[in-house]
């Protein structure tokens, strides 16, 4: 009877995580085929198809896709940290009666859909968008700036989308700090900035690492933002995977990409879990 509450999540995990994962793994070692669906599962006669994974290792295009994803996710993580730290600090130091409102403001973007928010960015950034129209109208520029479909636009969209994921763990870790610690530092001769650097910052590091990983992990596989805001050259894993699946109809290679991405993310996920266990 006591195990019963565990049964439901176990069932959920089995049906919606384990089974699809097995399907994807099976797909990744399948043979491409003409027809619908466009693959043939490995069998006793044919053995398994090692070519999709071999291709990932050989073709620099795929290697760059992974490298690009890591760099973009890492960059997004750092940008989010840089913005989230002052925000979280502000939240912790705000008067208690303002805190719920400020927290709600951090979460406000979640109240609207993800795609409309990207649409808003497109509306701002495109050649005929608000920013270019304004600058042209003021006479500051002669021709529209190529804002959209650029790396800055990509990072802008990514940072905007993932910022709340960084604010919340940082806020949680900063709000757990006893304010008396900074008083103790001051009593021992530390000025405000020194107390921050020697006491508050080191104690907030686990929270900062958690915030970074919470952004990095989903950002590494991001497809929509690079597609809608980024430059054509931003061929990151998510986008390449989409292309293999829907444009090349090469399901085994797409599945191999998915499995490789998962393996790559296991390291930061384990790191994150160890960090959380320690806290």
């Amino acid at each position: 009877m006591r195990r019963l509450p565990l049964l439901l999540p176990a069932l959920w995990l089995a049906l919606l995580v384990a089974v699809p994962l097995l399907v994807v793994v099976a797909l990744s070692v399948s043979f491409p085929a003409e027809g619908i669906p466009p693959f043939a599962l490995p069998g006793r006669a044919e053995g398994i198809n090692g070519e999709p994974f071999a291709l990932l290792l050989e073709d620099p295009f795929y290697r760059d896709a992974f490298l690009g994803a890591v760099l973009v996710a890492g960059g997004t993580g750092l940008l989010c940290l840089g913005l989230a730290f002052p925000m979280a600090l502000g939240l912790v130091r705000a008067a208690p009666r303002w805190r719920p409102l400020l927290l709600a403001l951090v979460l406000l973007p979640f109240w609207t859909g993800f795609l409309p928010r990207l649409g808003a960015w497109i509306g701002l950034l495109r050649d005929e968008g608000w920013i270019n129209t304004l600058l042209l109208g003021l006479g500051w520029i002669a021709a529209p700036l190529p804002l959209l479909y650029s790396w800055p636009a990509l990072f802008l969209g990514m940072t905007h989308a993932y910022l709340p994921f960084a604010v919340l763990p940082l806020y949680a870790s900063l709000s757990r700090l006893d304010p008396v610690l900074e008083e103790a530092a001051a009593d021992l001769g530390a000025t405000g900035p020194v107390a921050f650097l020697t006491v508050t910052l080191p104690l907030a590091l686990p929270g900062a690492a958690a915030a970074f990983l919470l952004v990095f992990i989903p950002a590494a596989g991001e497809y929509v933002i690079p597609e809608l805001l980024g430059p054509p050259s931003a061929q990151l894993v998510g986008r390449v995977l989409w292309g293999e699946f829907f444009q090349n109809r090469d399901w085994p290679v797409a599945a191999a990409l998915a499995v490789a991405l998962l393996v790559m993310l296991i390291i930061p996920i384990l790191l994150f879990q160890r960090l959380e266990a320690r806290r």
Partner: peptide, 20 residues
Amino acid sequence: VPPHARPLNMMFQSYALFPH
């Protein structure tokens, strides 16, 4: 004179040891 410049020290009730 701000706290950090006062030539006296305090022992806090919660001890306020730096955990790191």
